Computed example of a mutant assay.
Amino acid sequence: MPQINAERWRAVETLVDHFCETDQVPAIALQAMVEGTSRCYRKGRQRVNDEREPLREDAIFLVASITKPFVVLGVLNLLEAGELLLGDRVKRFIPEFGCSGKHGITVRHLMTHTSGLPDMLPNNRELRSANAPLSEFVKQICQLTPDEPPGRIVQYQSAGIAILAEVIQRVSDLSCAEYLKQALFEPLEMHDTSLGVPDEWSTGNQPKIDRITEIRIPEELNIEPHWDWNSSYWRGFGAPWGGLFTTPSDLANLVEMLQQGGRYQHKQVFSARTIEEATRNQLNDIPGLSKSARQGKGWGLGWQIVTAANSDYYGDLLSPTAYGHGGATGTLLWIDPQLKASAIILTTQPQEPHGRFLARISNTIVATIEQ
């Protein structure tokens, strides 16, 4: 039975200590799970420039793009309820989306980053600096012309995830944040998780908002007073492509569900077939996608399939069956079915251009596993 070697685990803690004590990373919280057993470790400070406040045991992190597979799971919940199909054209649910070359874009295209849409709107920075609402982002994405026709290229696109969130809203008549709360967070007992910071997190004697870690903003992004990830605007915005707030222990509940084929505790949250489809490489099944377009890439439904080409986050030791997602705020979640292992690494230091600390931590975690 696979297990974590206690002596080798010290190397993980030593590396995390080194990153934090040399100020390469302000804070790191991680949780590694192998065959039902887990190891947790945390180091650093709650605020970037305040050495007096160490990282809280109950710290909440903005996990950036790890948000994306949650939105996809929300849409898959609608699929299981018979509300839509992966092959449905998006314009079926959002009529105004079906223009400027987007007529043929399907739900599957958006989930697998093959829609041809760009990652962000051309004026993304200006919209955020102006504190534009999510509805304005969706409106402008609906007016975009794709870079390529759907199903021709694999191009990471936050814009497509924003549209999936709009599909959730139009089909369920609930905001994406509320739908995810009811369909995912509550069944998975993720009580410290929310898409965007809700008002109730600012109330009470011990408001949850005080538990949110501060992110160190890279100099190249620190140009507008209300633009950054720490601003009240961005915290409340609830970006479907990057606005999830959560903890390692909450994410561990999600991991348990995925590893158990959709089952969490005594509840079947998703069918095993849905999870199997979401976590296998879908790119081979997309008509029109050339071999060269697929080469070195892998996408399930919302989940990235780990390959040598994307090891900057995942490291070098995961098996070909591994999948996960990273976040621009310096976060990573991966699951390796072959190793029967998973890891959650949440930090407050964006991965690029400051180094490959997430991959180094991942390698060190994998090296602790005894088969």
Rank of each mutant, 00 (worst) to 15 (best):
G300K: 11
P149Q: 14
R360W: 00
D312W: 10
F357R: 11
H266S: 15
Q169V: 00
I94P: 02
L15G: 06
T67S: 15
V75W: 11
Q31V: 02
Q268S: 14
T368K: 07
I217N: 04
G298Y: 12
A11S: 14
I345S: 03
L127I: 03
S194Y: 14
N222E: 09
Q143N: 05
E166F: 03
L144G: 12
I4M: 15
I141M: 06
Q155V: 07
M111L: 12
I217A: 01
G87A: 12
E83Y: 08
T329H: 02
T145F: 02
A64S: 12
P133S: 13
R39K: 15
D312I: 10
T247K: 01
L55P: 04
Y156N: 08
I4Y: 03
G261P: 07
S231L: 11
R235N: 14
P337N: 11
T246P: 02
A309V: 00
R52K: 14
R45A: 04
Y156R: 04
L333H: 01
T22K: 07
A11K: 14
G74M: 05
I168T: 13
E276I: 02
R56F: 09
I217G: 00
I335L: 05
N363E: 11
A11T: 12
V12G: 11
G74Q: 10
S249M: 10
H354C: 09
P122W: 11
V138M: 01
P248I: 12
A343F: 05
T145Q: 13
V107N: 05
Q182T: 09
Y264K: 05
R47P: 00
Y41M: 01
W234D: 07
V269S: 09
G326D: 11
S129K: 10
I141Q: 11
L134H: 09
Y233Q: 10
E13V: 05
R92V: 06
A341L: 00
N230L: 03
T112Q: 13
E80Q: 15
T246G: 03
G300V: 08
Q24P: 02
G324F: 01
L318N: 04
I212W: 05
H103F: 06
W299P: 01
Q259H: 03
M111F: 06
E178R: 15
Y313K: 13
L180E: 07
W241C: 05
K297V: 08
L110P: 10
P198E: 12
G236Y: 06
D50P: 02
G242C: 08
A11N: 15
G315H: 05
P337L: 13
W227P: 00
E7D: 15
S232H: 10
Q282Y: 09
C176T: 12
D250N: 02
K340I: 03
Q46W: 07
L188M: 11
S311G: 09
P198A: 06
K181N: 13
S342R: 04
